[in-house]
């Protein structure tokens, strides 16, 4: 079975819903209500975007978003932005521990929030590009885009866990 790749110019992609798109091939074929998802949500943000139908079956893969026409690219990017929306931590306001449960109060690009971390070893992942991904006790995700760009106090509070 062959994977169906989209290289760019052969499709027009339009928004269907906040996280769905319609794909129209220039040959005439139309696929509706497809959900774009990253095949590499951590390591490749604009490459290899899979398009899933209602049943969760893959209908095509976009090799590189940058090769799409601007309108098509924007339609996909909007969906991805909506689907992969996670708070980006700008500042660590407070980090306390009780009974081995860590409470973090953070300032994010989406407001101030407090969450729990049960096991910092598995919940905090440091990536090679300097990003830090955090999973709280309720399975919500957060991202620190660049540890070194945080203020000194936040870095000092986070360092023991990374």
């Amino acid at each position: 079975m062959q994977l169906r790749y989209i290289d760019g110019p052969e499709v027009r992609i339009t928004a269907y819903d906040r996280i769905f798109v319609n794909v129209e091939f220039f040959g005439g074929e139309v696929l509706t209500e497809l959900e774009p998802r990253r095949l590499f949500p951590i390591s490749g943000l604009t490459k290899y975007i899979t398009l899933l139908d209602n049943e969760g079956n893959e209908r095509a893969i976009i090799r590189n978003l940058n090769n799409l026409m601007p309108e098509s690219r924007d339609a996909i990017l909007d969906c991805l932005k909506e689907y992969y929306m996670i708070p980006r931590i700008k500042r660590l306001i407070k980090r306390t521990e009780k009974f081995k449960i860590w409470m973090w109060t953070v300032e994010t690009d989406r407001g101030i929030y407090t969450f729990e971390i049960r096991n910092s070893f598995t919940a905090i992942k440091v990536l090679h590009d300097g990003r830090i991904l955090i999973l709280d006790a309720n399975d919500n995700r957060y991202e620190i885009p660049d540890l070194n760009k945080l203020d000194k106090r936040s870095i000092r509070l986070i360092l023991p866990d990374v």
């Binding site: 689907y83 992969y84 929306m85 996670i86 919500n140 957060y142």
Partner: peptide, 9 residues
């Protein structure tokens, strides 16, 4: 009515 789970919420 349905719940759509996404990446972060």
């Amino acid at each position: 009515a349905e719940v759509k789970r996404m990446y972060g919420n």
